[in-house]
Simulated assay, not measured.
Amino acid sequence: MKQIPNIVTLFNLAFGCLAIVCILQPGENIGYLDDGNILHINMPERIVWGSVFIGCAALVDFLDGFVARLLKVDSPMGKQLDSLADVVSFGVAPGMILYQLLRMSYLREPSAFDTSTWAFLPALLFPCCAAYRLAKFNIDTRQVYGFIGVPTPPSALLVASLPLVLFYDQFGLAGWVVNHWVLYALIIVLSLLMISNIPVLSIKFKTYSFKDNWPKWLLAVLSVVSAVVLHWVAVPFVFAVYVVLSLVIGRRQTAENP
């Protein structure tokens, strides 16, 4: 019975591995030149499946903790195994998405095939900071009902949404997704948020009163409404609201308890 949560956690790891396999097999044709010498992006479907598998890993990551609490079988091994799985699913896999998106961004330029590999390596900053964040979480006793720094799963889901935004391009944002300057800025911001010391909201409910949990209910409502209106763009939108709410509430709590 006590191994059931660990088995669920291993599904998280398996989904992360499947995501990496899909992301690193983007297809034979990423771009082509038309008669006007303009490079177009032909979005491979496999990288989209990588995003889907990261989403599956996030769902399983939520369930393993729920199952452990339900069966009352929390263990130090389960905590370590969860972090190891998260490094793969929410660190390495989204890092590979950023790597591939950077490659696609440079394929739009006339000098595409002269681009140095160094231009893609900043994507590796994301998994490095994710691993640091997870290690920090394991030894920080303060992070019970709140977080210090943005957790890896929401950061990974934001990155995982990018191929879907690019593939469906419902609001004409594809050009931004494959703009390497935008990608570099996103990598830096997400990496700094993960390893920062800013207080961040946890989705866990200590009580069910609206007064104590209004930010969480607000996020839940915004998630549903934005998913209907914005589709996959809802993910970065809700992430931004999540970070802003955390900053506002954290400052308010600091002012009330100096």
Rank of each mutant, 00 (worst) to 15 (best):
M1L: 02
I4S: 02
P5E: 08
V8F: 04
F11N: 01
L13C: 02
L13Y: 05
V21W: 13
G27W: 12
G27F: 10
E28H: 13
E28Y: 11
Y32A: 05
L33G: 06
N37H: 12
L39E: 15
I41P: 05
N42H: 15
M43T: 14
R46A: 05
I47Q: 05
I47W: 08
V48K: 11
W49R: 00
G50L: 13
G50R: 08
S51T: 09
F53I: 06
I54P: 03
G55V: 06
G55N: 05
V60D: 02
D61Y: 10
G65D: 08
F66P: 03
F66A: 09
V67I: 15
V67D: 14
V67T: 13
L70E: 12
L71W: 08
D74H: 12
D74Y: 07
G78L: 11
D82P: 05
S83C: 10
F90R: 04
A93N: 00
L98D: 03
L101M: 05
L102V: 11
R103N: 10
S105G: 13
S105C: 06
L107P: 03
R108C: 03
E109T: 15
D114I: 02
D114E: 14
D114C: 10
A123F: 08
L125E: 07
F126Y: 11
P127F: 03
C128D: 02
C129K: 09
R133P: 11
A135D: 08
K136S: 15
K136D: 08
K136H: 13
N138I: 15
D140A: 11
D140M: 09
Q143E: 04
G146W: 06
G149P: 06
G149W: 02
G149C: 03
G149N: 08
P153S: 09
P163G: 12
L164W: 14
V165I: 15
L166M: 13
F167W: 15
F167I: 10
Y168E: 12
Q170G: 04
G172K: 06
A174N: 10
W176G: 13
W181S: 14
W181K: 14
L183V: 03
I187L: 01
I187G: 04
V189I: 13
L193T: 09
L193F: 13
I198P: 01
V200D: 04
V200Q: 01
S202E: 01
K204S: 00
K204M: 01
F205P: 10
F205S: 11
F205Q: 12
K206C: 00
T207Q: 01
T207M: 00
F210T: 03
K211R: 14
W214P: 00
K216L: 09
W217V: 02
L218Q: 00
L219E: 01
S223R: 01
A227G: 02
A227E: 02
V229P: 11
L230P: 07
W232E: 08
W232H: 08
P236E: 14
F237L: 10
V238P: 11
V241K: 08
V243H: 10
V243C: 07
L245G: 11
L245P: 05
L247C: 12
R251N: 14
E256S: 10
N257Y: 08
